Computed example of a mutant assay.
Amino acid sequence: MNNGADFTIQSLLLNADPVVQAVMAALALASIACWAIIIEKAVVLGRLKREARTLTALAATGGIVPPEGEARGEESMSARVLRVGLPEWREGRDTAETAGEFRDRLERTMRVAVTATLRKAEPGLPLLATIGSVSPFVGLFGTVWGIMHSFFGIAAKQDTGLATVAPGIAEALFATAIGLVAAIPAVIAYNRCSVQLSRIRQEAGAAAASLASRLARRPAIAGGRRAAGEPA
C-alpha cells in the first residue's frame, strides 16, 4: 500500500488492491459502453424522429407515395408503412366488412410496420438500464473491499496515522466515484431515450391511424375482395 502523499489518479489506480483495480476496470469498460450506446441512440432516435415527421406529413396530405429520397438506402418508416398498408388497401374492403372494420384492419397493419421500425432503437437500452442500476453497487463493493484492505494494512503495521490510512481510503472511494461516473450518464440517457422513443411511437402511431382513415375513404386501385364462397 502506498504510504506517500501521492494522490494522483495514476497513483490511485496503480497502487490499489487487485480486486479494487478489477472493479475500476469493469466500471471503466461499462462507462465506455454506456457512451457508445448514447451516441448510437442519438443518431438512431434522430433519424426515427425525422421519419415519424415524414409519416405525419404523408398522412396529412393523404399521399400514397413516399417523398422523394425516402426509397433510397435503408427502408424508412414511411416506405415500410406503405409497403405493408397499400396491398391491403388495393385488395379493398371485404363484402363482410364494415367501413370501420376495413379502416381498423389497415391501421393494425400499418401500426405493425411502425412497431417493427421502432424496434431498431431498442437494442442497447436494457444495457443502459443495467449499467445505471448496477454500477453504484459495483463501485460500493470496490469501496468496501478497499477499506477492508486498508484496515488489514493498519493492523499489520500497528500504525493508525493519516499517512497510513489516507491512501487506502482514497483508493477505495475512487472506486465509488468511477461507479457514479458510469451510472449517472446511463440513467439520464436511458430515461431520455425512453421518453423520446415513446413520443416517436405515439406520433408515428397517430400518423398511421390518420393515413389508414384517409385510405379507407378512397376507392382502391384494384377491385375489392371477393365475397366468401364466390366462384373465381
Rank of each mutant, 00 (worst) to 15 (best):
G4A: 04
A16K: 01
V20P: 00
A22F: 03
V23M: 03
V23F: 08
M24P: 02
A26D: 02
C34R: 11
C34Y: 04
A36H: 09
V43W: 14
G46R: 10
R50Y: 07
T54V: 11
L55E: 06
T56V: 09
T56S: 15
A57T: 12
G62C: 11
R72T: 13
R72K: 13
E74N: 10
E74A: 15
S76L: 09
S78V: 15
A79P: 06
A79D: 05
P87D: 06
P87Q: 06
E91L: 10
R93W: 07
D94G: 05
A96R: 07
E97N: 07
D104G: 03
E107P: 01
R108V: 12
M110H: 04
V112Q: 14
A113Q: 08
K120M: 14
E122G: 12
P123Y: 09
G132M: 11
G139T: 05
F141H: 07
F141Q: 09
W145K: 06
W145Y: 00
F152Y: 12
A156V: 12
T160W: 04
L162S: 00
L162T: 10
T164I: 06
V165I: 14
P167Y: 01
G168P: 01
A172I: 01
A177I: 11
A182V: 05
P185R: 10
L197Q: 06
Q202Y: 04
S210V: 08
S210I: 02
L211T: 06
P219R: 12
P219E: 10
A222C: 07
G224T: 08
A227N: 07
A228V: 11
